[in-house]
Lab assay of single mutants.
Amino acid sequence: MSGNGNAAATAEENSPKMRVIRVGTRKSQLARIQTDSVVATLKASYPGLQFEIIAMSTTGDKILDTALSKIGEKSLFTKELEHALEKNEVDLVVHSLKDLPTVLPPGFTIGAICKRENPHDAVVFHPKFVGKTLETLPEKSVVGTSSLRRAAQLQRKFPHLEFRSIRGNLNTRLRKLDEQQEFSAIILATAGLQRMGWHNRVGQILHPEECMYAVGQGALGVEVRAKDQDILDLVGVLHDPETLLRCIAERAFLRHLEGGCSVPVAVHTAMKDGQLYLTGGVWSLDGSDSIQETMQATIHVPAQHEDGPEDDPQLVGITARNIPRGPQLAAQNLGISLANLLLSKGAKNILDVARQLNDAH
């Protein structure tokens, strides 16, 4: 009898209710805020589980004197976190989706994509230029951005401005803007500013005609071990179906173009009346040469937790077992079709030249 009692006690200790789920994140304040929001949602869904947040620095956090596009290494903000995932030191990792490459290392998958916040870019102005827009900034004003995508589009749109690289986390960039006289304004992701509670610093939100956004911008991705079915089931509740389908289309477009950090590629997606609209573009580094096109596809946005595919093969690095396969494939095909259209119009040449120029500098 006593033996059975011990077995029952052991089973209770090993039951999922007692389990601590370890969540990996970057150390920056924004990353911690984003991770806290994901953990809060998981806690609400699984009140019996405990969650421990483990923060670590990544290569991208450490190399702050070089433009991201020049470092010449993929997975700048993800490699150390993936290493911890691989060694079973954490069970899942919360990322900004735009930091996750469209091809993940073997053994990993994006197990959830959370509801997207505003994906557009924002302009934050130096205190002396508050009330201005990019259009009304004085001639030769210097605007800071760490992104080739932003610089290429904005140089084309605002030729009277000069664009220079600015690195560091959000706090560091804002301090550089406010305390030094080098920059009249800087460009940042609206979602990051909003998550930090800095709505009052948003001086201008850039519309798609001015600057399309990065693939996955404004959404959070939760990376897990691809074979860890328990954790895949656990994080599945975080999937937002519309965000998922938009981001599958965007990531398929980028992957098929073979774009990345070192080339200016941008997108804009919208879901309306059962249609998914995808606009994508590529630019030369100075913005003088560009190709942009829009395509659409009829896609039914499923309700969360309709029964999805059981075999769960990944699409552009994403596993969404609780979302039907048909809409996911339709979104992926839309991204591939748009990429093929741009490639047929000469996108590869623009991107190759951009890559060579970026590598040469």
Results as ranks from 00 to 15, higher is better:
Val222Gln: 01
Lys62Ile: 15
Ile54His: 05
Leu92Asn: 12
Arg164Ser: 11
Gln204Cys: 00
Pro47Leu: 06
Leu134Ser: 02
Leu188Ser: 05
Glu210Asn: 13
Asp65Glu: 15
Gly287Cys: 05
Ile323Pro: 02
Asp352Asn: 06
Gly221Met: 00
Pro119Leu: 03
Thr59Trp: 04
Leu341Thr: 14
Glu82Leu: 07
Gly287Thr: 01
Asp61Val: 01
Arg32Gly: 11
Thr190Gly: 11
Leu76Asn: 12
Ala112Asn: 00
Ala226Arg: 07
Thr269Ser: 04
Gly168Ala: 03
Leu285Gln: 08
Met271Gln: 08
Ser146Thr: 08
Gln275Ala: 00
Leu357Cys: 00
Thr66Asn: 10
Gln180Gly: 10
Phe158Tyr: 13
Asp121Met: 02
Ala226Asn: 02
Leu206Val: 07
Arg195Val: 05
Arg22Phe: 10
Gly111Trp: 02
Lys87Val: 07
Thr279Cys: 02
Pro309Ile: 06
His120Tyr: 13
Gly287Asp: 06
Val202Asn: 03
Trp283Leu: 05
His305Val: 10
Gln204Pro: 10
Gly111Thr: 03
Ile21Asp: 00
Leu177Met: 13
Gln181Lys: 12
Ile53Cys: 07
Gly48Leu: 13
Leu100Pro: 04
Tyr277Asn: 10
Ala152Lys: 07
Ala297Leu: 05
Leu170Cys: 09
Leu334Gly: 15
Thr41Phe: 08
Asp307Leu: 00
Lys115Leu: 11
Gln292Arg: 09
Glu258Ala: 03
Ala55Asp: 11
Leu64Arg: 09
Glu82Lys: 07
Leu137Gln: 05
Leu137Cys: 06
Ser337Asn: 15
Asn322Leu: 06
Leu104Ile: 13
Leu174Met: 14
Val123Asp: 05
Ser184Thr: 14
His83Phe: 11
Val353Asp: 15
Ile71Gln: 15
Ile63Ala: 13
Glu73Pro: 07
Cys114Asn: 09
Ser141Phe: 08
Val94Phe: 04
Arg150Pro: 04
Ala151Ile: 05
Lys132Met: 14
Asn171Val: 09
Leu342Val: 15
Ile33Trp: 12
Ala67Thr: 13
Asn171Lys: 13
Tyr213His: 14
His305Gln: 13
Lys128Ala: 11
Leu81Val: 08
Ile318Val: 15
Leu76Asp: 12
Pro309Trp: 05
Glu117Met: 06
Val103Asp: 10
Lys128Pro: 02
Gln229Lys: 08
Lys70Gln: 08
Glu80Gly: 08
Val237Met: 08
Ser288Val: 12
Glu80Gln: 09
Thr319Cys: 11
Val235Ser: 01
Ile299Cys: 15
Gln296Asn: 12
Gly24Leu: 09
Glu162Ala: 07
Ala31Val: 01
Leu232Met: 12
Ser141Met: 13
Cys114Ala: 05
Pro324Val: 08
Asp352His: 15
Phe125Lys: 02
Gly259Phe: 11
Leu276Ser: 03
Lys74Leu: 07
Ala270Leu: 02
Asp286Arg: 12
Arg173Cys: 00
Pro101Arg: 03
Ser57Asp: 14
Val267Pro: 03
Gln229Ile: 04
Ala55His: 12
Leu351Asn: 01
Gly131Ile: 04
Leu285Glu: 06
Cys247Tyr: 09
Pro241Gln: 15
Ala151Gln: 15
Arg164Pro: 07
Thr109Ile: 07
Thr243Ile: 05
His268Val: 15
Ile186Pro: 02
Ala331Thr: 08
Val39Tyr: 10
Leu245Ile: 12
Thr41Leu: 09
Val123Phe: 04
Ser344Asp: 15
Gly203Ala: 14
Gly48Trp: 10
His120Asp: 09
Ala112Val: 06
Gly346Ala: 05
Glu80Tyr: 03
Val39His: 06
Phe125Ala: 05
Leu276Thr: 01
Cys211Met: 15
Phe129Asp: 09
Gly308Asp: 13
Gly203Trp: 14
Asn88Val: 06
Ile113Met: 03
Leu234Tyr: 01
Ser37Arg: 11
Asp36Lys: 14
Glu135Ser: 08
His256Ile: 04
Arg167Pro: 04
Trp198Glu: 12
Val316Lys: 01
Gln229Glu: 13
Lys62Leu: 06
Val222Tyr: 02
Arg175Phe: 04
Ala84Arg: 05
Ile248Tyr: 01
Ile110Phe: 06
Lys227Phe: 03
Glu209Tyr: 14
Ala122Met: 07
Leu42Cys: 08
Val143Arg: 03
Val94Ala: 01
Asp178Met: 11
Leu278Glu: 02
Leu220Glu: 03
Met196Asn: 09
Leu278Asn: 01
Ile186Thr: 14
Thr269Val: 00
Lys74Pro: 06
Gln296Ala: 01
Ile21Tyr: 09
Leu100Asp: 03
Arg149Tyr: 06
Gly287Ala: 05
Pro302Arg: 04
Ile187Asp: 00
Ala122His: 04
Thr298Arg: 14
Thr109Arg: 00
Leu85Ile: 07
Gln304Thr: 07
Trp283Ser: 13
Val130Thr: 08
Gln356Pro: 15
Gln304Ala: 15
Ser37Phe: 11
Ser37Val: 08
Leu81Lys: 03
Arg164Ala: 11
His126Trp: 05
Pro327Arg: 02
Met271Ser: 12
Glu293Tyr: 07
Ser288Leu: 13
Leu134His: 02
Arg32Pro: 00
Ala191Cys: 04
Leu174Ser: 06
Leu68Asn: 06
Ser45Trp: 11
Arg32Lys: 08
His126Ala: 10
Trp198Pro: 06
Ala297Pro: 00
Val20Gln: 12
Arg355Lys: 05
Val202Trp: 04
Lys128Arg: 08
His207Glu: 14
Pro309Arg: 10
Leu276Tyr: 13
Arg26Asp: 00
Pro309Cys: 04
Arg225Gln: 07
Val143Asn: 03
Lys87Asp: 13
Pro101Phe: 06
Leu154Arg: 05
Arg321Thr: 10
Gly24Cys: 09
Gly281Trp: 11
Ala31Asn: 00
Ala252His: 02
Ala297Asn: 00
Ala266Pro: 04
Leu234Phe: 07
Lys176Ser: 10
Val23Glu: 00
Ile54Val: 09
Gln155Leu: 09
Glu139His: 14
Gly203Phe: 00
Glu179Phe: 07
Leu285Thr: 10
Pro105Lys: 11
Gly24Ser: 06
Val215Ser: 13
Tyr46His: 13
Arg195Pro: 04
Asp286Glu: 13
Glu162Ser: 05
Pro208Phe: 14
Val316Arg: 13
Lys157Phe: 10
Glu242Gly: 02
Arg26Leu: 01
Lys70Ile: 13
Ile21Glu: 00
Phe51Tyr: 09
Lys74Ile: 08
Glu117Phe: 12
Thr294Gln: 03
Val222Leu: 14
